[in-house]
Structures are given as structure tokens and as C-alpha cells.
Design a protein around this nucleic acid. Structure first.
Lengths: 154, 154
DNA sequence: ATCATTTAAATCGCATACGAGTTAATCGTG
DNA sequence: CACGATTAACTCGTATGCGATTTAAATGAT
């Protein structure tokens, strides 16, 4: 009677694993844990590292723009960049045209640290033991999903 | 001359977007933001909600086991479950056999709240506007990636 | 020009997150 | 059974994260 065979039902024994939001969440934690000891050597946290990368690749940005780059609110970005400033890796300076905006840019020291840490993401990607094209595909899927989620939360 | 055409090179103009770890990170933030207002009605944070789900689907767990379920350290789980206990959604009780371990379980109130919030994940999944089978595929890829990352960070 | 509105950044309170270290209970080996 | 080693949970300090509010500056409508 065409009864359904036992297809490789991914997690029949553990329905908790089937929450996509949880997989995204916990994979993020796993990335964080893998990066942490590698970045410790440069005195950077995971988020601080991402912020420096964003500044390196996109250039000087206002606090708001950096928030958009990192998908963070200004209430998170402000203390973040203050710590980076204290560490001497970025500069904050008020726009003379519009005193409300603060422009953030990498210092030479920030650039130098990024240069030293150049190999870190490669190490992490190799640690995944997954072919690059597959990682790239996953990245594209996640970006598409993120785009949908962002529009739904305004 | 079979010159490569302009294939849809995903992010030729924005290399920052090509960090898989960042896509995972920011998609997690996007999920959190989408869930937050929906869970507010039940007095739950995103993590508290995930913890209740884990307890509902896997049953009573020790603090360590719940940490493994959620991929969290005990230093995160302990305050989390204390807040849930204060809210009356879980109980903490010392194992009589081994006074070191604390067993966590859902209260009736916790179960009732989960029941009320039953529709939330569906709402979120619908908000993605993505076919379920595609979400399922993405979930499997992420779980595989997470497994690799976890083994590398011990 | 004045004053309500808007806007950018910062501030505040709360809840994650983790590593390092602590405490208390159990285990293991003699 | 004694006692060092291990283990489970907890505590503490630091760094995210966000929503709500605040502050200060720029805008805009009359």
C-alpha cells in the first residue's frame, strides 16, 4: 500500500534538534568558542575582531553605519568602539559638519593587528573540514534567510 | 576563447559578507530580534524559551545535561535556570543520591506557557518565506558544521 | 527666526555568554 | 578508611546584546 519507508528522517529521536533558529544560535556559539582562543593572542574578542574586519573592508563608518554592517544597535556599538579606542585600534571623531555623528576608523595599530591575525579565519575554515564551495553555499543561504528575517523585524 | 563570463559572484563588492562565521552570527541576531517581541507576551527571553523547549522535549535534565542540550557552560545555565525558577516555570532539586547534581524539570506552569506559545516557531518560520524543506536542509548543514566546530574546540 | 520634530549617539537596566576560580560532594587508590 | 583527585554546580569579572530613554544637534514648518 505504498507505505512510507524509513527515509533518513533527520532527527526523529530528537525533535529539539529540528529548530533551525537553535541550530543557527548554537553554531554561532561554536564559532565564537573556536575563535576565542585564537583571537586572545591579539587581545581581541570575537565581536571586536568582526568590527575591525568591517572597518578594514568597508572603510571609515559612522556609529550607525557600523551598526548596520554588524547588524547591531547603537547601544551595542558605542561601548564596543570605546573599548577598541581604549585599546588603540580605532579612532572616534566627531563630524565637524554634523556634530551628532561620530566617525570610526582603523588606526595603524588596528591595521597591523588585523594583518597579524590574517591567518585566523583560514584556520577556522580548515577546522570545519568542509569544502570551501559548500561553505560558500551555506553562507549564501544564510544571507538570504537573514535578509528575510530582517525585513520582518523592521 | 572561453573567457569566464560574469557569473553571479556572490559578493564581489562586499568581501565582508563572505565571512561564514559572520553570517551565522548575524542570522542568530536576526532570529533573536524576531522572536523577542513574540516571546515578550509570555514573559520569556529567547534563551529562556529555548531552555523550556529543551526540557519539554528531552525531559528532566541536570544542569550539565541542559548545558549540553543548549551548548552552554554551567556558568551560563545556572543563572538562567534560577531566573526560570523564580518565574515558576522550572524546578531545581538536588539529587539525593549525589548531592552535587541539580535536576531541572518543567513545572505545570512551564508546560502551560509552552502550550500557549506553541504557534510562535511556526509564525517565525512562515516569516522567513522559505519552503520548509529548504529550511530543513539548511538546518542539517548547520548541525553538521556545528559538530565539526565543537570537536575542534574540545 | 522660533520652536516642535527628528535624528545620532550615548546611557541605563537586564539578560546572556564565557573562562577562571571556588565550594562541596564523590571517587579512587592504597 | 584515609586522602588526594575528580566532579558538579556555583561565583565572579568582563564583554556582549537589546529596548527604552536621554542628550544634544540639525531640520522644518510657519
Amino acid at each position: 500500500m505504498s507505505k512510507k519507508p524509513d527515509l533518513p528522517q533527520p532527527s526523529a529521536t530528537d525533535p529539539f534538534a529540528d529548530f533551525l533558529c537553535f541550530s543557527v544560535y548554537s553554531t554561532g556559539l561554536a564559532f565564537n568558542r573556536l575563535y576565542k582562543p585564537l583571537l586572545d593572542r591579539y587581545g581581541l574578542t570575537y565581536l571586536q575582531y568582526l568590527a575591525l574586519i568591517a572597518l578594514a573592508l568597508r572603510g571609515e563608518q559612522t556609529v550607525s553605519e557600523l551598526g548596520e554592517s554588524l547588524f547591531l544597535e547603537s547601544s551595542t556599538v558605542t561601548p564596543l568602539i570605546k573599548r577598541l579606542e581604549a585599546a588603540g585600534t580605532v579612532t572616534r571623531r566627531r563630524d565637524t559638519r554634523d556634530e551628532r555623528v561620530v566617525r570610526v576608523s582603523l588606526t595603524d595599530r588596528g591595521k597591523a593587528i588585523l594583518e597579524e591575525a590574517r591567518c585566523v579565519p583560514l584556520e577556522v575554515m580548515e577546522a570545519t573540514g568542509t569544502p570551501p564551495e559548500q561553505l560558500q553555499l551555506l553562507n549564501e543561504q544564510l544571507k538570504a534567510l537573514r535578509a528575510k528575517l530582517v525585513t520582518k523585524s523592521d
